[in-house]
Amino acid sequence: MSFFSRSPWILHYDGSSCNGCDIEVLACLTPLYDVERFGIVNTGNPKHADILLVTGSVNERNIDIIQNLYRQMPDPKVVVAVGACACSGGIFARAYNVQGGIDKVVPVDVYVPGCAARPESIIDGVVQGIAALEQKRAKVA
């Protein structure tokens, strides 16, 4: 066990979505769920982040954004797709501008289903992400 499991910093990105999952992600920061208990911080900056938490689907105009953000995160890093849209495109899947889930453009480590995903399952997804982070670190080290 390393420091990664005690200090996972998150970058939250929202693609094409109804913003329902975003509300739930923010709910995780509120006193009711308080993810900072686990050392989780919402950084808002890829260069500081360990976990890329994506809600919403990939569309034509945000492909390079998601790829840039992912690329700018230093290793080890994991991606957690939160909600139906991020996992597969959800109800937007057949929209003319939507490509599908996040895994179309960056490798996804954890899928968190739900529409919208509940805070408990988001936190659970992040915890699974931490496990993946540890594995990757072990590989790097």
Binding site: K47, R61, D64, I65, I66, N68, L69, Q72
Partner: peptide, 19 residues
């Protein structure tokens, strides 16, 4: 060129891809 530009692509001589 790898500076943070809100996810926008940075290229050339200190330029950012426009929307």
């Amino acid at each position: 060129n790898d500076f943070y530009a809100s996810g926008r692509t940075t290229n050339g001589e200190h330029a950012i891809a426009a929307a």
